[in-house]
């Protein structure tokens, strides 16, 4: 009974609040990350030499440095040069850039898988390079990249738990506070684990729906 009251009066409101913050972190980060990933992926393939080098450098940096370190730099480092980000903004920025670096890798692979003939056909009709990329190449490449990008979004949901390290108190942060007050680490973190499991499951259902909706003859997955 005592347990139940504890859950009802303290755990539930705190986790709900944290859950809400987590969603607010994840959704914009996923969208910005995907946009950055598409942009960087395209530049890595179709950019001129300096642009390509810059885009590759972006991936090396943001994929190569641990995410916690990146978050610390955005939140604790930038004030040294006079830029103050609030924890939420710093977290979304860090997640988006890191996620974008990973997305770009999936998108680059998909872009490379598009046959040269598609480009020749577009060029022969008088398409400019930019139009060709946006109306011929990307619509095909994104369909192929979707499983990988979905994977990255699932991963983002989980690494959003790092935001509490820069005082953005989301689901894991709330759990940490609850647990250190009550010492009920096992119960609290089991519940938190369940919350993440719900989020990732819902996300993968949504991603499968999107894949189904975008599926076209010739782009289906062949199951053997």
């Amino acid at each position: 009974m005592e347990e139940w009251l504890y859950i009802q009066n303290e755990v539930y409101p705190a986790l709900l609040k944290g859950f809400w913050v987590s969603l607010q972190l994840i959704i914009p980060s996923a969208l910005c990350g995907l946009a950055i990933g598409i942009m960087i992926g395209v530049l890595r393939i179709y950019g001129n030499r300096p642009v390509m080098a810059a885009a590759n450098g972006f991936v090396v940096v943001f994929r190569g440095i641990p995410l916690v370190v990146q978050l610390f730099i955005w939140y604790f480092g930038l004030p040294y040069i006079g830029i103050y980000l609030n924890p939420f903004v710093a977290a979304v920025l860090g997640f988006s850039l890191c996620s974008g670096a990973y997305h770009s890798e999936y998108i680059r692979g998909a872009l490379l898988s598009i046959k040269r003939g598609q480009m020749l056909a577009a060029q022969s009709l008088g398409f400019s390079k930019v139009r060709m990329i946006f109306s011929i190449i990307l619509p095909q490449a994104l369909r192929r990249a979707l499983p990988g990008c979905g994977n990255e979004i699932i991963y983002l949901i989980k690494y959003s738990s790092l935001a509490y390290m820069i005082t953005c108190i989301e689901l894991t942060g709330q759990g940490k506070i609850l647990a250190s007050n009550s010492f009920k680490y096992t119960e609290v973190f089991l519940m938190i684990g369940a919350c993440y499991l719900v989020m990732t499951s819902v996300a993968s259902i949504i991603l499968n729906r999107v894949e189904d909706r975008l599926r076209l003859p010739g782009f289906e997955h062949h199951r053997i």
């Binding site: 046959k115 003939g117 598609q118 020749l120 056909a121 577009a122 011929i136 619509p139 095909q140 369909r143 076209l216 010739g218 782009f219």
Partner: peptide, 8 residues
């Protein structure tokens, strides 16, 4: 030779 229709 190989048509190159836009697959999507």
């Amino acid at each position: 030779q190989d048509f190159n229709l836009f697959d999507h």
